[in-house]
Design a protein around this nucleic acid. Structure first.
Lengths: 335, 335
DNA sequence: TTAAAACCCGAAAACGTTTACGTAATTAAA
DNA sequence: TTTAATTACGTAAACGTTTTCGGGTTTTAA
């Protein structure tokens, strides 16, 4: 009935010491089965739940992890979060979310604010605007941290990535096999390994088929969507690519819009392929050939990896998990 | 250099008491400007950040809110979270995420686990599988809570919703004006006000135009996507709707797939309209006429509302904010 | 029968803050 | 000049746990 229900209250009503109640709740071997059940039943009856702040303060464990990502409203990241959340749930952990808007200052601000014991560990997919290796080299010593998708490659840290190079190579080859030679590359994540590796796969595939690379066919991502559409239109008008390889999902819709604007037929006039987790890719006009990353699974694996570290189990395994993306061929490459 | 940096450490190095340092950090009027700056500079120098657990424990404030939603990987909810996170950032709050998978048991489990002082407030969009008014009637007395989109209508609580009735009415009218009379309704969220209201808008629009409602044209949502496709196909075969009104985004792609399967031409054979936040709606084949909810703004408003409560400002204003959805007419209704 | 081990529980300190209260020094009011 | 008010800081308790240590009782082994 009365005020807050805490350990002291339980102890009083059961004529036990605070210590005993606490140990009973934590299933300590020091407590007899009989008193354990007494405590548990009263706890349930009074709807007792331990005060997390007190618990954290004393034990230095928070049962909380943080996820730091550039943008929540993105198919890839929201799927990854979904995976992370589900694993966290299994382990009884809570999940904090921070979005950086691709701003490394924010990223560091958030991360620093987590170092005082607010969380037990961090999952992060770093922002693309700047590459700050030094900061993260220090950071990984201070707190359990797992990178996913957007990682710092040279760092000795836990990383979950995908086979960006191979899948980009394959995708480019697919375009070549469809008869394309003037393959425009829409370049995203340039400052990150993921972006560089995708580009390398593209380049090497061209080279492997004796196609020389044309710098004029490479377009760099701009944060404002309108600019990208305009740039793609420009690209079409100045040079005449017969295919587009979009290295990030954000380029896919602008590419379609540009084609529509110029009345170019996909895939007859130009073939399009894009990294993407759009659930509606198969219903686009025409359906879009995609490189789809296993976003959900990446979240799962990243979270599992972190919990391995937190529970001190299975450390020493390879720190680098690489998952396979899948190339889904549809009408936009039409062959 | 040495171990952890906390208030005690600062106090020692500055020859001040712990209390003084704490007050200085919290900008108390009791402390002179001189010592304040001394404290602040050393704090910055040593990279001091207060231990949140200790702070929470003593002050009963966590600077944390929780967001409870059915599913993160959903355009509407990820946009809403994005809005919530941005506002939380402005207020210096942290955001916990929980997904219920439309399971009311989980929903209650999560919520209960937040009542012991883990968060200062909750934002929730309730699960659709069951309607548990009693639970929430008690809950809103225990903790600041704001419902968004999926609300409990009869509750005296803060609610952020959209004009579901009006926009459904308008959308149905749009179909009627396009010449449709056999308008199938794909029914989602049946147990929630949002779902019921959308249906009411549909029904009333039919009535307003002298069209009698045909129960056979109403299809209820099934959790497994395949079932929905099959059901829609069935519906087409048994009755011959000339339009589909999809009341939730989850029905949109199945509807398209069913049409594709049956080789029905959209919008010639059948017109389609759907509630949706798909960014690619305009690029579908054909582009999809949508009722688009202001998901991001809903998140913004919900968070603002919660922070109003938490800062005790502006309470007494209307507890019910209704935002406008927008009907975006595209090719799938073709007129 | 006795020593050792096992079992069960309690007292009290500790985690790092915040805050009510007390106090000395200074300033303003009478 | 005396008194009251203001300013600036310190003491210590409190928040609700966890955990170390110790002790008493019962069981087991020798």
């Amino acid at each position: 009935m009365s005020g807050e229900v805490n350990i002291k209250r339980l102890a009083q009503e059961l004529n036990l010491s605070i210590a005993t109640v606490s140990k009973a709740l934590n299933d300590s071997y020091e407590i007899s089965l009989k008193t354990k059940t007494r405590v548990l039943t009263l706890a349930k009856e009074l709807n007792y739940t331990p005060n997390p702040a007190a618990s954290n303060l004393r034990s230095n464990k928070t049962k909380t992890i943080a996820v730091i990502i550039p943008n929540i409203a993105n198919n890839f990241f929201s799927l990854a979060i979904k995976g992370i959340e589900e694993i966290a749930r299994q382990y009884g952990y809570h999940v904090l979310i921070y979005q950086t808007h691709e701003d490394i200052e924010m990223e560091m601000l958030f991360t620093n604010s987590l170092l005082n014991g607010r969380v037990d560990g961090i999952l992060t997919s770093v922002s693309s605007n700047e590459y700050n290796n030094d900061y993260y080299r220090d950071l990984v010593k201070k707190i359990p941290l797992v990178f996913f998708d957007r990682v710092y490659e040279s760092l000795d840290a836990f990383k979950i990535t995908t086979d960006d190079y191979q899948i980009s190579f394959n995708a480019t080859e697919h375009l070549i096999e469809c008869g394309c030679t003037q393959i425009s590359y829409l370049y995203g994540l340039e400052k990150l390994p993921a972006g560089r590796t995708r580009f390398a796969g593209y380049k090497d595939a061209l080279a492997a088929h004796g196609i020389s690379i044309d710098e004029n066919l490479i377009l760099h991502y701009q944060p404002e969507e309108n600019e990208n559409v305009a740039n793609i239109i420009n690209l079409f008008q100045s040079h005449k690519p017969d295919a587009i390889f979009s290295s990030i999902e954000e380029f896919a819709i602008p590419a379609y819009l540009a084609c529509r604007e110029l009345k170019l037929k996909i895939p007859d006039d130009v073939k399009i392929i894009s990294f993407s987790n759009l659930s509606s890719a198969k219903l686009l006009n025409p359906s879009l050939t995609t490189i789809t990353q296993p976003a959900f699974e990446i979240g799962i694996e990243a979270a599992k990896c972190l919990f391995k570290i937190l529970t001190k189990r299975g450390i020493g395994d390879d720190q680098n998990i690489v998952l396979k993306s899948v190339l889904i061929k549809r009408e936009s490459t039409g062959c």
